[in-house]
Structure formats: C-alpha cells, structure tokens
Nucleic acid binder design. Structure first.
Lengths: 240, 240
DNA sequence: TTTCCACTCCCCAGATATAGCGAGGGCAAC
DNA sequence: GTTGCCCTCGCTATATCTGGGGAGTGGAAA
C-alpha cells in the first residue's frame, strides 16, 4: 500500500517531477520492475484517433496497434469506455472474431494473457487507460490485482494528471461553453429530434433555433450539426 | 495513508458494502469524524440539473442549494468541471458578484471557509464532486490537504463507484455491434465530414455509404444520422 | 453608461440528407 | 446449400438543413 513502501514513494515522486513524456516512460519502467509485471502502460485515447501513451509495450506492438487502428476493436478500450471501475481483462467481451484475432496478435508481440485496466476521464471528454499486463495464471493475477487495486487507481490518476499537463490547449480553460439554449438545442438534436421538433419542444421558431445551432457550431468549431453534437458530447457539454 | 490506518480501513470497508444512499451518508459522517473536519460531501452533478449527493452539509443548505439552482454559479462546480486534479477552493475564481454572494450565503448555513474538491468523471459524461470542507486558517488547511490528498482521491473514487452502482440504467451495457464499415461511416460523420466526403474517404460511392448509415441507424434505433452518431458515441462504439 | 452577449424573430435560395425502389457477389455459419 | 450478413453499386423525388442577409429586446459586466 502507498505510504508503507519507500521504493514506490520515490517512484511516484519521480513521476510528479517528470516534465517530459520520456520521464513518464522511465517511471512506467520503474513501476513495472517494482511490481514485477510484464507491462505497464498509460494510453491516451484521443479524438480523431490521435492517441498516444507511454509504457513498456514493445515499439513494434505500438506501431502495429496504431497502424492497424486497433483502438476500434480493442475490447479493453471498448469495455473501459463504458465503465468507471477498474476491470480485469477476463471480464471483458472477447467473443467477437476480431477481438480473438486481436488477442492472438497481441500475444505474438509479447503482451501477456492477464490484464487489468483502469479508465480515466478528464475535462472535455478526455479519456485514457492505465493498464497493467502480465503472464501468469488466474489465481496469481487475482491476488495481485486485489492487493494493488488502490495503488493502481492512484497511479493511474497521477499519470493522467501528468499527461494533461503536457497536453497543450488543455490547460487554458476554454470558456467556450455553450449557452443554456444552445445546450438545449444540442441535447434535443442528439436525441434524434428534427429541427422542427426541437423548435417545437423549446417553444421557439425554427429560425431562432437555427441561430442557436449555428452559434453552437461556431463555438465548437464544428463543420455541421452532426459534428457539433459529437463535439458537445465528447466534451461532456451534453449528456444523452 | 491508506494501509496504515485501521480505522480508515474499516470505514472504507463499510463504504464498499453500503447498499443504499443512507449507507453512504453514514460513511461520510464517519469519515468527517475521522478526519476531524466540518464537512465531507459527495455531490453528483447531472447536466439536466438533476443532482443528488450525500454528505454532512445541513439539510437547510442542501435545500437552499437546490432551490436556488446554485449549481449554475457555484465556482467549485464550475472550476472542477474544467479540471482534472483536486483543487483548493482558494484557487478558484470568486471574483464575480454572484460567486461572492454565494460564498457569503453558504457561510450562513455553516459551510466552512476552507474547501478541497475532487472532480470525478464516469461514463457517458457523468460528473461528480467530492468535497472536504472546514473552518481553519490557510496554513492548517494546506497541511491537511497535502497530507491527505491521496486518501481523498481514493475515497472520492470509491464514493463515485458506489453512486454509479445505485444509478439505474448505467449498468446495462448492451452491445449491438456495428460492422467495420458502419463504424467507419459513423466515425467520419462524427468528425464532421459530409456524406460526399465520407464516401470519398472510404473510396466507396455515396449510395453505398448511405446503406451503411441506414443500417447503422436501424441497429442503433436512431431516428436520423445525428441521432445515430450520438448513440454510437454514448455506447462507446466509436471514439471521437 | 456603454458595450457586450443571450435570446427572439423574419425571408430566401442552394446544398445536402432522407426515403423509396432494386441488384449482385462474397463469406461464414447452421 | 440455404440462410443471413456484409460489401458494393444504381436512380429519383421530396424533406431538411445550411448559409447569406437584417433587427429588436433585455440583462450583466466593464
């Protein structure tokens, strides 16, 4: 547990003082050695498929993952996106053919059979994963995750805190939040209403509604209504 | 620190076994006594304005907060919504007239002058706050928050985990999967491309694309394209 | 006080999406 | 070897959305 482990303390101090991605990389390697696991990875899953991370997976696997756009079929990402609590890979849905194929390929690149991933969310819909990976039997893995669950949650938190520090454009608190009416409009559009229906629901003319949509589109830097709704959702401005 | 404190351990065990909001309420009272602070509050902030929570603020203050819709002006909520890391209330922006008025009123209801709040985010844009509040001088408060920062992050995490358990409709994760092409289509639409652009990107005719969109709409039970994209996003089928 | 911003309303034309038909090849599972 | 799903292509007409203008109110901040 934290506080009872001098070595872990010093590693976390190093993380807090890291000021580059390389620094985080070193910390993940140190943590991997500390916990005696095969891999330890922080993975930022960003919009538009831009994603980065740091960790101990091989470069070859990272390249493969990105080039094959595995994020779209990775059950770990899919599963964590729906959850709040950390999840053991065994509890995910590996039934689809693509998922099994993905698993098989990952093993070829040195990814272990056991995994434990923690979803992390930041402002504006930011989403990331913190994963510990190992090769061992179920009993051993269960013991490990139960013993270290709390540590891992905290470490995940600290990794994300660092990653957000590095990310430009995240810190300047973009105050381009939507007005109440704009949020109403975006919300109802996301619920599938047509403009006429939305206007009716809000008891305003369709013309007025259009101004809100355009205004929201402008604020969100969106190219069209669908884009605006998508951005509003991913930034957590509306909930559907 | 966790793991070095038997009393805190037992309180957290009680939290893990809580199965009602009242149970969480009791835990927050126990934690307040444990940390010897004035208040300790978990506050679920829903976009629709539906909000609930549990904690040790007086009923009168909670009623006042809800009836006055303070969530819209509360600098703690506003500030935490843009941040990832825990934040001391002193670092928030209290400059607006509404904020100062709010602060003055809160003091009348027994809210202390010092506060430390942790933002928490779950799937589908869920957002909550975990706050510790006290009446003391700055030095004492800084010492307290620095010493207990890690504990508080973890406790916040556990509170939210419980709250999500209680929330109906959050658990059922239905996986109606889209085909790869449908996911491509939905993703590109969410990125703001028009149908013509999407068709071009995928190197297919616009007619074919339309079939995918319709098929995805059908699978998602969506009324139109925007709705389909919104549903695909909130179900984590596409990552934008 | 003035300046900003949110909110409300109006017209019109062109671009885009939706809805209705239908058709064939490939691949996998039952 | 039939059934079902995925991928691909076509046409046409109507509904809806987008983009270009302009205009007035009220409230809150500088």
């Amino acid at each position: 547990m934290l506080g009872t482990d001098k070595q872990l303390e010093s590693i976390l101090s190093a993380l807090e003082q890291a000021d580059t991605l390389d620094g985080m990389q070193s910390v993940s390697e140190a943590l991997r050695d500390h916990y005696k696991v095969d891999h330890l990875v922080y993975h930022w899953v960003d919009s538009a498929g831009d994603q980065y991370g740091c960790g101990t997976y091989s470069d070859a696997w990272q390249d493969q993952y990105l080039s094959q756009n595995y994020v779209r079929i990775d059950p770990v990402v899919q599963g964590c996106y729906q959850r709040f609590h950390p999840v053991d890979w065994k509890r995910l849905d590996w039934s689809s053919k693509a998922a099994r194929e993905f698993l098989r390929t990952s093993a070829e690149y040195g990814v272990g059979n056991q995994g434990y991933s923690i979803p992390i969310r930041g402002p504006n819909g930011q989403f990331a994963l913190f994963t510990v990976n190992h090769n061992c039997d179920d009993a051993e893995w269960t013991k490990f995750t139960e013993e270290n669950r709390r540590d891992l949650i905290l470490i995940a938190h600290y990794f994300n805190e660092k990653a957000l520090e590095f990310e430009p454009g995240r810190q300047p608190i973009q105050q381009s939040s939507l007005s109440p009416r704009e949020i109403d409009a975006m919300t109802l559009l996301a619920m599938g209403y047509s403009r006429a229906q939305v206007a009716n629901s809000l008891s305003i003319s369709e013309h007025t509604l259009r101004v809100y949509i355009e205004s929201a589109r402008f604020k969100l830097g969106a190219l069209n209504t669908t884009h605006a709704v998508a951005r509003a959702m991913s930034r957590g401005l509306i909930v559907v």
